[in-house]
Amino acid sequence: MLPPRDPDERLKARGTDTRPDGRFEPHQRIREADGWDIPEESRLLRTQVTMERPRSIITRNTSPDISFDRSINPYRGCEHGCIYCYARPTHAYLGLSPGLDFETLITAKLDAAALLARELGRPGYRPAPIALGTNTDPYQPIEAKLAIMPGILRVLSDWSHPVTLVTRGQVVLRDLALWAELAAKRMAAVGISITTLDADLARAMEPRAPAPATRLRMIRELAGAGVPVRVMVAPVIPVLTEPEIEAILAAAREAGATTASMIPLRLPLEVAPLFRDWLDRHRPGMAAHVMNRVQAMRGGKDNDPRFGHRFQGQGTFADLALQRFRLARRRLGYHRDAAPLDCSRFGPPPKAGDQLSLF
Rank of each mutant, 00 (worst) to 15 (best):
R118S: 15
Q295P: 09
H309Y: 14
W179F: 14
L216P: 09
C82T: 01
L265F: 06
I106A: 03
L173D: 06
I72S: 04
R174K: 14
T50M: 00
A213Q: 13
R345N: 13
R10Q: 15
G313M: 03
G347E: 11
Y86L: 05
I263H: 03
D304P: 09
R276W: 10
G299C: 09
A287G: 09
T316D: 15
G226C: 02
A92D: 06
V271F: 02
A287M: 08
D337E: 11
D34S: 05
G133P: 03
S344I: 03
A113K: 08
D198M: 07
P273I: 05
T90K: 00
R88M: 00
E244W: 09
V227G: 08
S160P: 00
E9P: 01
G300V: 07
G95E: 08
P273Q: 03
L182S: 12
G191V: 03
H80Q: 11
E41Y: 00
R326L: 11
D175M: 06
L332S: 02
P350S: 02
A13W: 12
T316Y: 13
V155K: 11
L240E: 14
R29F: 14
V231R: 00
R29P: 02
R186M: 05
L332C: 01
L45T: 02
R55W: 13
A147I: 00
M51Y: 02
T47H: 04
L156R: 06
F346I: 08
F102D: 04
Y125R: 06
R298G: 08
W179Q: 09
R298C: 08
T195P: 02
D200M: 10
Q140S: 12
R118D: 15
D101F: 07
L115H: 12
L197M: 12
G353R: 10
L105S: 07
V49M: 03
L222M: 09
P138W: 01
R215E: 08
T104W: 04
A204W: 10
P127E: 07
A13K: 15
A128I: 02
P268G: 05
C78S: 01
L269I: 05
L269N: 01
P26T: 04
S67W: 12
R283Y: 14
P3N: 09
E143L: 05
R331Q: 03
M187W: 01
D342N: 14
D342P: 03
E143C: 10
T104L: 04
I58Q: 03
P235Q: 07
G300W: 05
A321L: 05
K12Y: 14
Q28L: 14
H282K: 15
L2A: 04
D21W: 00
I192D: 03
N292F: 02
E41C: 10
R76L: 10
G226L: 04
S42M: 12
C85P: 00
G169Y: 07
P207M: 04
A352Y: 01
V231F: 01
N61A: 05
Y139R: 10
A255Q: 02
M286T: 14
S71M: 11
P74G: 06
V294R: 07
E221Q: 15
Y86W: 07
L120M: 12
S160L: 10
L332V: 01
A131K: 02
I130A: 05
T164D: 03
Y75N: 06
A338L: 13
V171P: 07
A199K: 08
F307D: 15
G300Q: 10
I106G: 05
